[in-house]
Design a protein around this nucleic acid. Structure first.
Lengths: 205, 205
DNA sequence: AAAACTTAATTAAACGTTTGTTTGAATTAA
DNA sequence: TTAATTCAAACAAACGTTTAATTAAGTTTT
């Protein structure tokens, strides 16, 4: 197995799936972008759908560990943990925005049951860690008794909102149409700062 | 032109596009669901893509007027306006969740430039009205000097987050897999209340 | 009011492409 | 020599769209 060529195909696929969707991407276009022969995709992955599953399995970097480390850090208080998790989460999503789009795209559709289950079981533990920190803070009396689940939805949803539509994002931010906000370090900080401030005022007593 | 049959086709299309995506829906499946002959779709709309454009033009109910009425209401103070707008927005999106999914889906993809422009020009004025209220509140000194654009992103993003993936939503809310939260009046109120509380603590001095 | 005519709506069948996938020969690597 | 890789070509199936024939509805003429 040529691991390098497999990588090439997967990278091309992530970008195409993100921009055109799974159904909107043909294997010919995909092969062309990856610079490999059409038949190589089925040779390596078995089918277009198996390629998709392979991508989700591979590219879902183990983010749980990073978050768990923050959750266990005894040098941080509850709000400090939330701050650090937000920074971590925003940065990671901005970096892997193509992959994240693919995931989000797939979650929206009710196709490919199998794939949905893989995604949910990979994503769920992450939000569970944040949930734990919120619960701790409430128990200790440093956080208000907020709606924990929806607080997480606000956190995740805010990032998604700016991440998922460049056009709408630029219009809202009064940036030119061709501006790419996702590589702009200042913009990442702006989003991070906003969410942290939003969370602080919402949960801090 | 048989307006009733046109409606049938559009309604079937919205639901299918929402669940399977535009590319993932075949005109045969669509015709079958709408209970019309395959050729009727091109007879009435010209093409599958024109049908899509037609849906966006037709179904985008003029929500601007409702929001503008709230914005102009002299009986309400700034935070009262925000409260009412949130209620209005959440309820409307939950009611038209299929259509909203289609819009969101299309905004994510960078296909069909024409269609994207239609959508953005229809959606943009809405967020601009909310923006106006936030600016007024800040000018009057009753609101904190928050990041206005990202505050709107949080508002919209929170609703989207619970609206766009039933599976993830149910998992997060510890509901059974087959539960449909979007018709549950209690759930709508819960989301509304959360966002209002989030906004109040974030923007109120 | 009936018949003749005209236009609109509906249909099954077929159109040419494109789709994902497979094949079997050619090439490369071990 | 053997096995793994690469490739052009072909596969059947599904795609969006069009066609030409038929039915229904509406209008005009007798």
């Amino acid at each position: 197995m040529n691991a390098e060529k497999k990588e090439q195909i997967m990278n091309a696929a992530v970008e195409l799936f993100a921009v055109k969707g799974f159904e909107g991407t043909s294997v010919r276009e995909l092969a062309s972008k990856a610079g490999v022969n059409l038949a190589m995709i089925n040779y390596y992955f078995g089918s277009k759908e198996k390629l998709f599953e392979n991508i989700v399995e591979c590219k879902a970097v183990n983010t749980r560990e990073e978050l768990e480390e923050i959750a266990k850090d005894k040098e941080l208080d509850e709000i400090g943990k939330i701050d650090k998790m937000v920074d971590n989460y925003v940065r990671r999503l901005f970096c892997n925005r193509y992959f994240h789009r693919v995931i989000h795209h797939e979650l929206m559709l009710n196709q490919r049951e199998e794939l949905q289950n893989i995604i949910v079981t990979k994503l769920f533990p992450n939000s569970n860690i944040i949930k734990g920190v919120l619960e701790d803070g409430i128990k200790k009396g440093v956080f208000k008794k907020v709606d924990i689940e929806l607080t997480i939805a606000s956190l995740v949803g805010t990032v998604n909102q700016v991440l998922l539509s460049k056009k709408f994002c630029n219009k809202m931010m009064s940036k030119p149409e061709n501006y790419v906000p996702y590589d702009d370090e200042k913009f990442i900080k702006r989003v991070s700062d906003h969410i942290k401030s939003l969370m602080r005022s919402h949960i801090l007593k």
